[in-house]
Design a protein around this nucleic acid. Sequence first.
DNA 1: GCGATGGGCTTATCTAGACAAGAAGGATCC
DNA 2: GGATCCTTCTTGTCTAGATAAGCCCATCGC
Lengths: 254, 254
Amino acid sequence: MVAMPRTAAAEAPPATYMRIADTLAQRLARRQPGALVESENELAAMFGVNRLTARAALEELERRYAVRRTKGRGTFVARRFDYRIGPDRTPSWTVTVREAGGRPRTENDRVRLVRPPIWARRELGLGEDGRAYHLQRRRWVDENLATYSSSFVSPEVVPGFERRMGVESSLHDVLTDFYELAPQRAWSRCEFEVASPAVAKQLGLRGRDLVSVVRGRLDCESSGRRIEASVAYARMDVLNIVYEFGVGAGEVRR
Amino acid sequence: MVAMPRTAAAEAPPATYMRIADTLAQRLARRQPGALVESENELAAMFGVNRLTARAALEELERRYAVRRTKGRGTFVARRFDYRIGPDRTPSWTVTVREAGGRPRTENDRVRLVRPPIWARRELGLGEDGRAYHLQRRRWVDENLATYSSSFVSPEVVPGFERRMGVESSLHDVLTDFYELAPQRAWSRCEFEVASPAVAKQLGLRGRDLVSVVRGRLDCESSGRRIEASVAYARMDVLNIVYEFGVGAGEVRR
DNA sequence: GCGATGGGCTTATCTAGACAAGAAGGATCC
DNA sequence: GGATCCTTCTTGTCTAGATAAGCCCATCGC
């Protein structure tokens, strides 16, 4: 009689913490987003395991973005929003979040004229000593910070930008209403990175988690002049960035 | 004298395991991908901590896709490939991997005529009883399984497909060479999901990790006939899916 | 030569116990 | 009434010890 062959090895039974995670995931799917989840000690008692085993299950669910945990407060059912972007689609934050049933909020730092970093100078076609307006923006869903973006706006195209752009202004609205421009995405690039310490701090991340990164440039549709170069970071536990193009992409079911 | 105010709280010093992870990340950046990392016990001795603390550091690096760990073998420096896709870009797996210095490999299951799932029938415009060829494909980088894809091909457009498509054939080549078609992406949608148990098994994932998912449809450029509907899953520790469009997107530095 | 066996390495999992630190709410003091 | 302290609950971190299970390779037996 041969021993168990290595290729067709019988499935190892899943670990306890994984079973608890799966069980819990099913139950949480029926609860309201934001609802308080049982504490680690409660779960340990419920499933008859050590607290660290229950904790491992919650960490597994956190990796799946199914829960969100805060020291001192507890574990909560997570709520994630799809944010669909693509060449044919530059969605409004406010509209998207509201349609999904959330409360959107945007906050801009005060705009200042600065010497932009090298990548922004190159994108905007500025020289070594060129200046640009620096716009930093944070967006919330309900009480959750979702994105932080940093963008540089060419002062030649939008003179006096710092007086037009208020704390709650929409960049798109300011460009179209005050400057009568037709902004258009020249290019865009979406990927995932480990948050740098600076970005982690801006997004309120404890560790160096993965974040969605969208870089791009906004040009003027008619003249082709370069308006804005930007980089936006999104917390993946709050936002599910979906990148799509072509007709029919929106109809895809999960 | 007031206590430490809560708003401007001094940064809590990072946890030991996080310090070790950061230290280790710097060192590993100078090593060859695939190199063996010190074992948990060695790290524990090196940093004078408990084995579980050293282990927590490695788990942190695994979350960042900086290392890859295998039970019984050890921890290894991870190697990730950028795979850039977009409306103007349908890259060849072989070329992309080879350019990045890896060894590509593709393996197709034998093609069979099946009754496709509802989403594929809808995409291909098939009726309730319609049939389609089912093509399952796995792609490797060096020894690492990277993607698993499942696609359905319309038999009306490519009759006799199961005889043309071999174990190592390229779908694109078969469509162009044998059927003289000009395949074109009708739409595409890229996002991230928690792997289902079935997908996790196909990709050799222990747990239910996050995977990149790309869905889409291939049409015939001239006639517009629907050729193929597909869904592809990629291991995020092997592949970094980058979604981009527009001129200039390729020039973006990190 | 060649396959089976087993030892020793590795990561994976689990328990028990402990202390730290953040958050929230009630009690207390003025 | 309002600010402050304190208690309690929560997650976060760390240690110590133990067992399981996968993998590799040397050794043994044939």
